[in-house]
Design a protein around this nucleic acid. Structure first.
Lengths: 297, 297
DNA sequence: CGGTGCGTTGACTTCGATCAAGAGATGTGG
DNA sequence: CCACATCTCTTGATCGAAGTCAACGCACCG
């Protein structure tokens, strides 16, 4: 409810929780005034640009085009649907700040969180290729999301194949993350699974400058962690306590510190490779190689 | 060891199992004679073409190009690596017959199967975009795989955007399958999870004509099922027995029958939607719509 | 005929779910 | 600014699902 935001129409306010007893709150969004939206474009997609440029070389021409893409900023409360299951929208939603998640609700009322989305991630990039969304996307914390029209983005990607390629790579990495989650759920103990997830979030947040080398803001609820790990809330709580007791993590004031990253990595069998980050984030040569391969496609 | 195959060089023979005590067997493959390979091209990629055409309209021009793509057929024994973790190959491998899987080996020796591949699936389509493989691919049963040079496929897809789009959609469906597996592992009981997997395989095999409306050949080992479900072999065995006792499945002569598909679907909470098959596989209109959207990208 | 892979069974243990209740936070309305 | 409701985290007790260990039968195969 910062003074920079003011109330407007509400597109994104459906409640997520199964037994939601929350009152209705309208979402907040920027004015739809195109001029203003355009001015803010660069800022709005900056986590995305940052993420892309970690792995991929963008020319000034490409970067400028991304900056100039007109987008609408929407502020959404925690635990609200961004995209409902079964919908097909003509807009694409980017997370600008906050955490979101992909999830499914099961007939017995259970909820499975399939992925976490952090700033720079897209909610529904390729959704229309498949027709309808086979899962929903919701905020986990309060989020600012940037909404871009599919048409605008389509024009951008056909003018800028490098951007199209970068977005594709981004999607392939999300796929790798899903696979790693499957490994975690299938064959790692609850402790290792949660620890692994915390390592992953650290690495992903570092890419967009939202984590230091050993800490990040961690506003995720234990219930939301539980649904992502496939555990009960009670057990998730105990797992976190164990990790804290072992000195593997320190959780204070909704901030996660990792006293000894190597120890946490070893404990949780975390290996950054699946995130496909360049060894040295600033290796220009490496970026050139990657973008060369991408263009071959 | 059919008379149609004869032994040649061995590219793909590394052993998968953690405690593999198998003797070494060379893989079998077709002659590399280009003329012969070309003649067989159409047959070799036919499950892929079949899969693509389920969701996507290909022009005669596109289909012909796929048929004419030169490929090398390789016969591989059960439980052999097709692609090793960490490798980056200049070839693309398609499953032509048999089952394969994506997997990871964990430090404690455990194996996690992340996906099953059935005829028509690709093993490593976008692998080079990410640099190295972050997981391995192995056969589950004996497989015939078609190996295509990346360069040939690159030329094909740049000449035929519809094929590129179709392959992309194929990949998005694989992603949806991963998500569904995550839901299964996280929030479904072992019985439902296995039942769900059996439903999924039925649907996927039907697409490539390898399943009837209620049955398919099921040569997957309980150990391989266990690694896919994240269960122990013993428990997998008991789960299968329960499903059989409930009359939900009949497993005889390595063939799976589903006496009452609706019952199995309801029991396992299976909903075909995530596979994004058209309601009516033969609806030309639906295919046109899909391919229209794809071309927009 | 003995090895080996695969399925099966039983006994026991452990991990994680469930149920129940309480303690701080946090936030909202009066 | 207080009072109340609601989250959120926490703890204890008990139950059930799944893992582990060990052994056996059967089919296949060299």
């Amino acid at each position: 409810m910062s003074d920079r935001f003011w109330s407007l129409s509400t597109r994104v306010e459906t409640c997520t929780r199964r037994l939601c007893t929350r009152a209705y709150f309208g979402s907040m969004e920027f004015s739809k005034n195109p001029a203003q939206a355009r001015v803010l474009g660069g800022q709005m997609l900056s986590p995305l640009i940052q993420k892309i440029e970690t792995r991929f070389h963008l020319s000034d021409y490409d970067r400028k085009a991304l900056h100039q893409l007109s987008a609408r900023l929407v502020r959404v409360m925690a635990h609200r649907d961004l995209i409902e299951e079964g919908k097909a929208s003509d807009h694409i939603t980017f997370i600008r700040s906050g955490f979101a998640c992909r999830y499914r609700i099961l007939p017995d009322g259970g909820r499975a969180i399939i992925a976490y989305l952090v700033p720079g991630d897209t909610c529904d990039l390729y959704a229309p290729l498949l027709g309808r969304m086979d899962h929903a996307v919701a905020t986990v914390t309060r989020c600012d999301v940037a909404v871009v029209s599919r048409q605008d983005l389509g024009m951008l990607t056909s003018d800028h194949p490098a951007i199209a390629g970068a977005l594709h790579i981004t999607d392939l990495v999300d796929e790798a993350i899903s696979r790693e989650w499957l490994v975690s759920m299938g064959r790692r103990s609850a402790e290792k699974q949660i620890a692994h997830l915390l390592c992953e979030l650290l690495a992903r947040l570092q890419v967009v400058g939202l984590a230091t080398s050993d800490s990040y803001e961690f506003p995720i609820t234990q219930a939301d962690l539980a649904d992502a790990a496939g555990l009960s809330v009670v057990h998730t709580n105990r797992v976190l306590q164990t990790l804290r007791a072992e000195g593997l993590i320190v959780l204070r004031n909704k901030t996660l510190f990792v006293p000894d990253l190597n120890r946490l990595h070893t404990f949780s069998d975390f290996d950054t490779r699946y995130l496909h980050l360049p060894q040295n984030l600033y290796s220009a040569e490496r970026r050139r190689i990657i973008s060369g391969v991408a263009r071959l496609q």
